[in-house]
Write a protein that binds this DNA or RNA. Structure first.
Length: 105
DNA sequence: AGTAAGGCGGGCA
DNA sequence: GTGCCCGCCTTAC
C-alpha cells in the first residue's frame, strides 16, 4: 500500500485551516470541494486518525444538518471550543449554522 | 423518525 | 504487500 494520499488530506487541512474564527463548515462542503460528496466519511476519518489537532481546528467542522457531529476528543470538547468562538450551540446543534457556514469558493 | 446501506481513505491484522 | 473493518458522514428506504 502506498503512503498517505497527499491531495486528499492536504486539501482538507488547507480548507479547514482557512475557516475563520467563529465560523463553521460541514464535512459535506469539504467533501464536495474534494470532488465527491461521498467523501464525507473519509474526510472526518482523516481528521480523526491524523494528529492534526494542533494545526487544524477540527471543531469548526460540523455535520451538514447542523449537528456538531462527533469529535475525537469528545463531543463536549467540540461544543466547548465552538462556544469559545462565539458559536452558539444548543443540545449538540449549532444555532443558525447556515449563516455561520463558511463556504469555500 | 429511525434504520439500513453506501462510496472512500486510513490503520491495523 | 494484501485484506478487512472502521470512521468526526450522507442519503435513501
Amino acid at each position: 500500500m502506498k503512503k498517505t494520499i497527499q491531495p486528499f488530506n492536504k486539501k482538507i487541512l488547507d480548507l479547514v485551516k482557512k475557516i475563520p474564527k467563529g465560523r463553521v463548515t460541514t464535512y459535506l462542503e469539504i467533501a464536495k470541494k474534494l470532488g465527491n460528496p461521498g467523501l464525507a466519511r473519509a474526510v472526518g476519518n482523516s481528521l480523526n486518525k491524523n494528529p492534526h489537532f494542533l494545526k487544524i481546528p477540527c471543531h469548526r467542522v460540523i455535520k451538514s444538518n447542523g449537528e456538531v457531529g462527533g469529535f475525537a476528543l469528545g463531543t463536549d470538547k467540540k461544543l466547548k471550543y465552538l462556544r469559545a468562538e462565539s458559536v452558539i450551540v444548543r443540545n449538540g446543534r449549532v444555532l443558525d449554522f447556515e449563516e455561520l457556514l463558511y463556504k469555500f469558493n
